[in-house]
Structure formats: C-alpha cells, structure tokens
Design a protein around this nucleic acid. Structure first.
Lengths: 328, 328
DNA sequence: GCTAAATTTGCAAACGTTTGCAAATTTAGC
DNA sequence: GCTAAATTTGCAAACGTTTGCAAATTTAGC
C-alpha cells in the first residue's frame, strides 16, 4: 500500500484538501503547519499519484512519439533530443515503433491517445501517414517530413536547398557526372532531395549528366547492387548524393567493391550525420539539421498548440549544415 | 470533449456499469443488446480512458525502462526488443535516459514510479546503481548486468565464459600476445570479461602475455591513444579482446593509424554486435546474446514478479554467440 | 409452462486526486 | 484592539472507470 494524501491528512490532523493544497504550493503563507505537512509527506515517503491527479486536472505530463524504428540510429538520435528537452520541461516521452507499417502507425496512435498524452510527435512512415492523423483532438507535430495537410504542424529541414548546396559543392570539387541515389519508396524528403539535386544540375548546365537511381532498401546491402550498376555506366559517375547515411554505407561498399576509392574516385555526400558516420572508418561527408533543434522545436510546437488549439498551422524550417569529412 | 462510457449508456438506455461490462466482455451471452452497445461505442468513437481505468484496477499497462542513452545503438537495439515483446503482450514501454548519471537514474526511478508502471527494467549506470533500487514496491529487473543485491532479478549473458571462448578462439587463430581493452569506469560486465580473458590465458599457459588496458572512454576516440601505446610495446599484441563494439571502433582506428591491418596483423574481437558492426567497412567479429531473448526474458521477469512478488530471486543467464567477420 | 440455475442488471462505493464555495482564520494597518 | 482584506480551511463534488451486491431477467431442462 502506498501512502496517500489522506494518510498525511490523518497524521497532521487536517483535511486532505488542505494537504493537497500545501503539497501543490497553493498555500502561500509560510508557517509551521505547512512545514509540518511537507515534512510528514516526506517522512511517510509520499509520492503523488499521477494517475489520479491526471484524472481530475486533465493535464498530461507525457508526450507521445511515433517513429518507425528506435533501433535505427537516425530515429534514436532524434528521440534522444526530444526526450532531453521534454524531460527538462518536466515531460516524459512515450515511444511507439511502427516498423514502417501504416497499420501499426494507427494502432500506435490509438494506444497513445488512450493514455491521454499531451500531444504526439510523429516521424511518419510515408506520404500517406497524414491520413492516420486527421481529426485528432490532441496537438500533433510531424518531425522530419512536411505535409500538405493544413492542420498538422511540422518541423523539417529545407531539403531542396540543402541538396542544391550539396550538389553545387560536388560540382565545385570537380565532379561532372553526378547521381542522386534515393529509395524506392518515395516520400517528401526523398523527392525534395532529388528535386534539389536536379535543380542544381540544371542551373549549372549539367542536366544531361544528372542520374537518378533508387536503392532497394535503406538497410545494408540495399544500395550495393545499384551502385555497382551505376559505376559501370559510361561516363561513370564521379559524385553521388545519397538519400541518407544508412544508405550511403552500402553505397560506399559498392564503390569499394568496384575498385574505386571513396572520396577520391567517387565523392559521396549524404544526409543525417549519424554518430557512426564520424568514425574514421566511415568518415562520411553528410548534411544534417541540428538534432537538438529539431527535437526542441517539435516539443515547442506541441506545447504551443496545446495552449492555442486553434492557432494557425505552423511549419518550421530549420537550417542544416554540411559536415565535411573524407568521402566528399 | 471525448466520449465516455456514460454517453454510450445514455444512447443505449442502460446503466453505465452495464456498458462497462459489455465493453470488457464480462457479459458472455451473445445477444442483440450487447452488439448494439458495442456498435454505438464504435459509432461514437469511444476510446477507453486508460487513466481512469488504471485508477480503479491498479493494473498498469506500461513498463518503465531506464537506460543510459537511447541514442547509443547498444541500448536502442535492446530497447527495441523490449518494446516489441512488451507491445505484443499489450504493454507500452516508457523510457528514461540517465546519461550515465546516478542522480538522473534516481529521478528517472521516481518519475516512473509516479506513473505507476507495472515494473521497471534497468540497464544500470554502474555498480552502485543497485543502491537506487532498494525497497521498491514494483517488480524490478536488471538487464545486462548482474548484481549481488538479492532482491533484484536480472538477465545477463555469461561474460566470463564468453570471453574465455573468445580468447581461446584468438589463441587458436595463432595469436600469442593478447590484450584485453576495457574501460576506466569498471562494472560487473567489464570485470567479468577481463576475468574471462585472464582465466583463458592462464589455462593456456600464456598468462605472461596477457595485457590489460583501459580506454579513456567508450566513445570515439576513447581507445585510440591506448591502442597506439599498446602496439608499440614489444612484443606487440597480435590479438585484442575489446570491451564492446563502440570501443572497438576507435581501437581499430588506432591499429590502422599504426600502419597495421586489422584482421591480419592484429585480430580484434569485441562485444554487442551492433547493427553497424556488420557493415563491410567495419566487419567486426563480435559476441552477443540474442537481443530478442534479452528483451523477452526481462519483460517476462517483470511479469513473473508481478504475479508472485515474493518469489525467489531469479537470475537468468542467456547464451551468447560469436559472429565471425573480418576483424578476427 | 414450470423450476432451478445461470446470467445480467443497476446501484453505490471506490480508486486518489483537485477545486469551487462559503465559512473561518490570520494578517496588516492603524 | 479594532477593521478590512487576505488567506486558509473543510466539505462536497468531480474526473471516468470497475466491481460487489442483491434483485431482476434469461436460459436450459424437463
């Protein structure tokens, strides 16, 4: 049996509503009785029963987060930054994995709603995910993907601009035949990056040299075969923009297996800046927004909409930076 | 305003306790009224209010998990397996990061208790973590670390045996001067691995060739300097057992920077089998228990103790396997 | 169609809090 | 020490459920 507010009330011989108020600092006057109540609460080892509290206040101190896969560094790193900021504000984060499955995404939504979270941060499975999140009565934020859906706030980097910059960077480094390697299952980010790539190539009069390819999957060896295929083309690509780091790993393996040196014969730039991408064995040149900022903005958007449910939809574009390493 | 059980009762003209029972399948007889209630519940978009439910049943469908850092693959991979199994059983997992900080570990504990979780799975910060978890009234499991504390269940791999096997494996591959590279901050796992290493060396009459070293940190470049130092010794180590994959990454970088080839001049075996360790650029020979099993056992231990709070302390040792790749 | 057994029903209380209200107490100012 | 203002107090209701109990209803078996 855990100790309740009533136990404290009995010991201190006051009504339990008084105890509640003292514990919540609603009795502002400093006096011996308050101290005495606080002291016995502590002595008895009282822990507020959040569940009961929530039932009446309707305030929730947990934020739901729906992601495709925690065990994937990209998501776990962002999850961490959401958690850090949320915890700092006194919120917990409840995470649900969708395993890239729309059905699981909708059950994740339901189970979070049922725990009445203060809001839900979603890193969507795909372009159709927004269908799952219409007419929710809790604050909702898409993280990492924009959406046309007018009622969903989102925070995202400027994929088009960043990819244009990356492409120009490779051109500047002397690449002339460039390829963008995306993923078969397309989504906004993937398409925007491709778009940025093509646009930059066009601007530099290199549109005929622009190759667009698709990897089977993001996981190793998803881009391996496709990369080998690309490298036997004439002219051979000398610069690759890859959808993300994860995919770049197998692209790099493909380059090596063709007998080329990554970063010399073929330059590679990708996206995400995973922690491991910094390892000397990988040393990937990669583009990423600040993950701290991404997480912070997402949480702030939730809290903002909680305060003003009817506020206009807000789309935040965070800046990204390129981390230059050995591959490009 | 979300729809409650009373709304349904009003529509169907029954008492709300009846609705509750029908919704929970306590009315076993199949009849039109039950169907009608179920149907209106659905039509009204009723979502059970778990918070209220929990208040009376005292059953919780969330399991707390305390880990040092989700953004670290080792933890996120295990977290995933805990979540997968827990979700499958109808539980949610609430994750708290400690950032390797004992104080944060204890606040994590408090905030989970306050949400009255069904139990807590802990991947402890250090050897003193058990102090934080005495006399809890919820089921508790240590994952990945054993403990002397008699009231804490735990699940762990047999670190001593696995490291002995690994050492013998390297000896079998011709290594004669071996080193174990651990971490400065020691814990059970680290010490057990060192112990297994020394024991195997002794059994093979190689105890004089056994070198024990400590890296500054697990993160890159934690083991870099120490590895370079080791490799200038005479005789030079030709086989390394490294505390974990993360550390092995910088150890490998150190080996390369000395001009040696990993997997030929110096063999490396480590622990965890992170997803990235399988990449061809890394291709680490590594030892790990099944993460699915680890997660499953941890959750089962929680549920077992929930059912029988007074059951004897249970310590589960799961088997591990070595994944042989290019480094050793 | 009757009887006994099985099931369902509604009432009321409970879970552990917060909070509006009116009454009681304390404080500040003189 | 009085008065007015400020604060605190306890009561009771509420949040949305579940559940024990006794009464009511349905079912099964004949």
């Amino acid at each position: 049996m855990s100790v309740t507010i009533k136990d404290i009330a009995k010991v201190c011989d006051v009504s339990y509503s008084t105890v509640s108020r003292v514990l919540n600092g609603k009795n502002v006057r400093q006096n011996a009785k308050n101290d005495w109540i606080l002291a016995t609460a502590k002595a008895l080892g009282y822990k507020p029963h959040n569940i009961a509290r929530q039932l009446v206040t309707k305030e929730s101190d947990t934020i739901g987060m729906i992601i495709p896969d925690v065990s994937n560094s990209h998501y776990s790193e962002i999850t961490k930054s959401v958690q850090d900021y949320a915890n700092w504000l006194g919120y917990q984060v409840l995470i649900s994995n969708t395993d890239w499955d729309l059905v699981k995404e909708s059950t994740a939504r339901d189970s979070l709603l049922t725990k009445n979270v203060a809001g839900i941060i979603v890193m969507p499975v795909c372009d159709r995910s927004h269908l799952i999140f219409r007419s929710l009565d809790v604050p909702l934020v898409f993280l990492g993907t924009r959406t046309e859906e007018k009622h969903i706030d989102y925070v995202v980097m400027d994929n088009i601009q960043a990819t244009m910059d990356a492409t120009e960077y490779l051109i500047g480094r002397g690449c002339r035949t460039l390829a963008y390697i995306g993923r078969k299952i397309s989504n906004y980010s993937s398409r925007d990056r491709m778009e940025g790539f093509l646009r930059a190539m066009k601007e530099h009069g290199l549109s005929r040299e622009a190759i667009v390819a698709s990897a089977d999957s993001l996981e190793f060896p998803g881009g391996y075969a496709e990369t080998k295929r690309l490298l036997t083309q004439v002219p051979r690509p000398d610069g690759l923009i890859v959808f993300n780091d994860q995919l770049a790993f197998s692209v790099m393996a493909g380059i090596i297996s063709c007998g080329y040196a990554v970063g010399r014969d073929v330059l590679v730039v990708s996206f995400d800046d995973l922690q491991i991408s910094a390892l000397p064995q990988i040393s990937l040149t990669t583009i990423t927004p600040s993950k701290e900022e991404l997480g912070r903005v997402a949480v702030d958007l939730i809290l903002r909409r909680q305060k003003e449910p009817e506020a206009e939809r807000k789309a935040v574009i965070v800046s990204s930076k390129m981390v230059k390493r050995a591959t490009g």
